[in-house]
Amino acid sequence: MDLATFGVQLLNALQYGMVLFLVASGLTLVFGILGVINLAHGAFYMLGAYLAYGIAAATGSFWLALIGGVAIAFVVGLLLENVFIKRLYGRDHLAQVLLSFGLILVLDEVRQLLFGKDVHSVAPPQGFGGTIQLTDNLSYSVYRLAICVFCLAMAAAIFYVIQRTKIGMIVRAGAENREMTRALGISFDTVNRYVFAVGIAMAALGGIVVSPVSTVFPGMGDSMLILSFVVVVLGGIGSITGAAIGALLIGLTDTFGKVFFPSVSSILIYVLMAAVLLWRPNGILGRREV
C-alpha cells in the first residue's frame, strides 16, 4: 500500500470514527446522566437518515433536512422523556432494555408508515458533490472531508460544553455521583429531559450527515446501535473522552481490517472488544464500578 492509498484509508477511518463518536457520545451521555440504557438510540440514527431523505426530497435542500431533522429528533426526545423514559429512572436494567425495545418496534413501524421500507440515497449538499484530486489516480470526496471537519467541530463543541460550562459541570457531577449531586440541590428533572433530547438529536444528526455517503435503509439503526455499544464498552460508560478513543479505535480497526484481513473483518471489532475486556473490563477510561 502506497502512502496516498494509506492516507485515503486513514481519512475513511477518521470519518467513520467521527460519525461513530457523534452517535455513541449521545448514548454514553444519556446513560451517564439518566442511568438509562437506551436500545432505541440506533433507531433514531435510522430515523435521522430517513428524515434527511424525506425532507431533502420534499424541499430539495440538504441544509433544511439537517436542521429540520435535528429539530424533530430533539422535540421527539423531549416528548419521549416526558411520557416514557422518566418512568424508568431507578427501575432495573431489564425494564429499560424492554421499554426501549418496545420503542424500537414502534419507531420502525412509524418509519414504515412515513417512508416505507425502500432503500434510498440522499444527494450531498450543493458545492460538496465534487472530489479532490490527491494523486494522478486517487481522489477523495469533498463531502467526506466535510463530515470529518464537521464532526471534529461537533466534538470540540461537546468537549467545551462538558468541560467548561456550568451545564457541563452538572452533567459531569451527575455522571460521577447522582445522589450527591441531587443532595447539593441540582434538580435533575429538567437536566434529564434536555440531556435525553440532546442525546437523541445527536443520534439523528449522525444519521443525517452520513445519509449522502451511505445508503439509507431500515436496518442501519441496528448495526449502529451495536457499534455504539462496542464504543462505549471500549471507552468506558459516561466518558466522552472514552467514547472518542473507542470510536477512533473502531474506525481504524474496521477500515484497515477490511484492507488487510477482508475475510474476518466483520468480527475484528468484536475481537478488539474481547481483548479490551480481558485487559480492562470497565473500558479503557472506565471507573471500577458502574
Binding site: I37, I226, V233, I237, I267, Y270, L277, G283, E289
Partner: peptide, 21 residues
C-alpha cells in the same frame, strides 16, 4: 467467560455485541 467479567449495563452491551458477532 468474557462477558461475566463485567457487571450490569456493561454485561447487557457485551452480550448484545457478542451475539451480533
Amino acid at each position: 467467560a468474557l462477558a461475566l467479567r463485567t457487571r450490569g449495563v456493561y454485561f447487557i452491551m457485551v452480550t448484545l455485541a457478542f451475539g451480533e458477532m
